[in-house]
Design a protein around this nucleic acid. Structure first.
Lengths: 218, 218
DNA sequence: ATTTTATTGGCAGTCACTGACAATAAACTG
DNA sequence: CAGTTTATTGTCAGTGACTGCCAATAAAAT
């Protein structure tokens, strides 16, 4: 058989990944709002679907279970942070890099997303199922973290010390984030708290990265 | 009203915590075996209940959901490891302490439990719901880890650097454990693999604890 | 034996989630 | 525009995890 190249497409084209991402994100925002307002158990799948303007069936086609509805919103900010780390030049101090590249946005269009994300993470402290989903999401970030470290040091990203350091970094970031949640519990989300948070992040990471990976016995 | 001391008890006494623990552990063993044999989705709550000799209703009274049936078995070994860490003298190297105090038991009565635990952790790589439960369990250990560190350094266990280090340790242990799972995938659980694992654990922890906590800005 | 309290079991119901299929939408073709 | 093809959505019925409720039973004391 001769390859005629891409066959001329027929019928309705599948939705682009971008469109899919957007729809999932839209649903995610509604779900997070409802979870925050009424709690996880009190929010039904039907409610999320109605609020999002889709049928319940398509909701379950987009998300395997209720708790994973928070995923698009959370990964959005996790990805943003990973991007910052990717752009971390090898010769500059991490705290310094964060100060210049990581701007906790409070008056950008995505400000309400930031608040929503913090609201979700706050929820994970009372809703075990949400905490579980959150931890799984964070763990996924470890692979990318390992790649960042690998790129900086030349050690392959699947080497044990690299994975250990990536996991340690990730855990440190988690604690710093939980600390922000705790701090903003009373006084709300202030620019000051976000700035302190950025320093805590830098501290936590530098605590872990102070020692170069791969210098122990392998 | 005069306090007459503890009122004389009437009626059937509540079961002791110890009994409850034992029953949960027994159920947990059955559940883990079934999960390993048939997978999580293919194992119904009714099956677990029948295998454990209780009604489905009491099964759900002991466990909030299916995946948490693995908890008693997993925490059993996590607790054992925490006990070892608690007995870690401040002046001795961690690797050395582990070699003397952490004996990966292969021919003790709990050997089949060890195999079951490894089987579960292996399962968590294919069953996201189990992974989620596993991560939540591990996170609970962070508090105890923070206390261990606090006892060694005098820094309060809820101080940010201590919690960061505890989380980092925990993450390092997780990676080392996952590595053991991966290593024993082909050749099975050999004493040799367990010994290497012990060294990996020591490496991973010392990677994190090399730097004393609390010496950064607070 | 009876009373008292704790646990268990049985039953019905809710709700998250799935499979199967009909209905519709979005392209292209003539 | 009518017709064809393919992707997505909705509808409906069903499964199974989990809960509330009450009856039944177990383990103590009187």
């Amino acid at each position: 058989m001769v390859d005629r190249g891409p066959a001329p497409r027929r019928g309705r084209p599948p939705v682009s990944d971008e469109q899919r991402r957007r729809q999932r994100l839209a649903i995610s925002r509604h779900a997070v709002r409802l979870f925050s307002e009424q709690g996880l158990a009190a929010t039904s799948g039907e409610q999320i679907a109605r609020a999002s303007g889709v049928s319940e069936r398509t909701l379950w086609r987009h998300f395997p279970h209720k708790e994973s509805c928070v995923e698009p919103l959370l990964t959005k900010t996790i990805d943003a942070f990973r991007t910052v780390l990717h752009a971390w030049p090898p010769d500059v101090d991490l705290a310094e890099h964060l100060r210049s590249a990581y701007q906790p946005v409070l008056n950008s269009p995505s400000a309400t997303d930031v608040e929503a994300v913090l609201a979700v993470i706050r929820l994970t402290h009372d809703e075990p199922a949400l905490r579980a989903a959150y931890l799984v999401l964070r763990e996924r970030a470890e692979d990318t973290l390992a790649e960042v470290l690998s790129a900086r040091t030349g050690v392959p990203s699947d080497a044990l010390p690299v994975r250990v350091e990536a996991a340690a970094m990730n855990a440190a970031l988690k604690v710093a984030t939980d600390d922000l949640i705790h701090e903003t519990a009373e006084s709300g989300i202030t620019p000051d708290a976000l700035l302190r948070h950025r320093e805590h992040l830098a501290d936590a990471i530098s605590f872990v990265t102070r020692r170069a990976p791969g210098d122990g016995r392998d």
